[in-house]
């Protein structure tokens, strides 16, 4: 871990863009009685993976569905992380205070956020894009999502995601009430992914689809390379095809359609829904309904192992 901290320097960006959340990390360290850096690293999950440069076992599958024909807007995700986190699933409810809206955040103790939504109908789901160029001085993804969830302003969120310096390559599926956006962010650019589907859906796994700011050693994942040269049989490509197959032809998408996609195991080797195994699991599955009166549906662990629990925001 000392080597990781020696090679990275996120503190300045965190203090500049999200000073309150820097203080929150200090609070976690004090509350846990643990050294600050040992606690901070829990909120630098993706940046730690980028440091390790481990492309093996990429996971996490996300979907975004804008509101259409009286149906609400959704964003949803299977959050796939390391096996050691299983059993520590927590849903944080951050109480509203001043301008800060109430927030529901999936995480594990020590980490400030994996994904989440707020009572104003703003939500965000992220997928690591390890192949994209990273920055050792950018703002880490957990801080980016927490900043967005602290906002109720659509334009501010969209401006922020496109202008903040990104520490790690990420795909952001952002739901803002009836609207859905998808951005692939790297150290040098942020590119919107809009597949122009008739039903407006977006979807993502763990390889870039539009951003070509790719590390030289991951060139085969550059979205501009010829189709026949792409690793289409790799984990991320297989899961993307499965999600795409399930949501694109569905003209009328409900939460049941999304649940079925997130519970799917169309491919034995690379399923969307990952049972616990030696390297990891679907830590939690979320479906955020963002239109009207927003609410969350969530499972602890893979979504085929329990029913989704509906969680509402508190009354004002």
């Amino acid at each position: 871990m000392a080597d990781f901290y020696q090679k990275t320097s996120f503190d300045a960006a965190i203090k500049h863009w999200t000073p309150d959340i820097y203080e929150e990390i200090r609070g976690i360290a004090d509350g846990a009685g643990q050294p600050f850096n040992d606690v901070m690293v829990f909120s630098l999950l993706d940046e730690f993976w980028v440091y390790q440069d481990n492309l093996e076992n990429h996971h996490c599958s996300g979907v975004g569905v804008p509101a259409r024909d009286g149906q609400p807007g959704y964003i949803a995700q299977n959050m796939d992380i390391e096996a050691y986190t299983d059993g520590y699933q927590v849903l944080l409810r951050i109480a509203r205070s001043g301008n800060r809206p109430e927030q529901l955040i999936l995480t594990h103790p020590g980490c400030i956020a994996l994904n989440g939504m707020n009572e104003a109908g703003i939500g965000a789901c992220m997928n690591t894009l390890m192949q994209l160029k990273a920055s050792t001085t950018g703002l880490p993804v957990a801080f980016i999502v927490r900043h967005m969830l602290g906002s109720t302003n659509r334009d501010e969120v969209l401006r922020f995601i496109q202008n903040v310096p990104h520490a790690s390559g990420q795909n952001y599926i952002i739901g803002i009430r009836d609207e859905v956006y998808d951005f692939e962010a790297s150290a040098n650019k942020v590119v919107r992914f809009d597949p122009k589907n008739e039903n407006g859906t977006v979807y993502h796994t763990n390889h870039p689809l539009v951003n070509d700011d790719v590390k030289p050693w991951f060139k085969k994942f550059d979205p501009t390379v010829k189709e026949e040269e792409k690793p289409v049989k790799s984990n991320s490509f297989v899961r993307l095809a499965a999600v795409q197959r399930r949501v694109v032809p569905s003209g009328f998408i409900t939460d049941a359609t999304i649940m079925a996609a997130l519970r799917s195991k169309d491919d034995d080797k690379f399923p969307v829904c990952v049972a616990a195994n030696q390297w990891g699991l679907t830590f939690g599955s979320v479906i955020m309904t963002l239109s009207g009166k927003p609410f969350l549906q969530i499972t602890s662990g893979p979504p085929d192992e329990s029913e989704y629990k509906r969680v509402e925001f508190s009354e004002r």
């Binding site: 609070g27 976690i28 360290a29 004090d30 509350g31 846990a32 009685g33 643990q34 944080l92 103790p109």
Partner: peptide, 8 residues
């Protein structure tokens, strides 16, 4: 953070 840390 302090509350979170105590859970942690």
């Amino acid at each position: 953070g302090l509350q979170h840390g105590q859970i942690f």
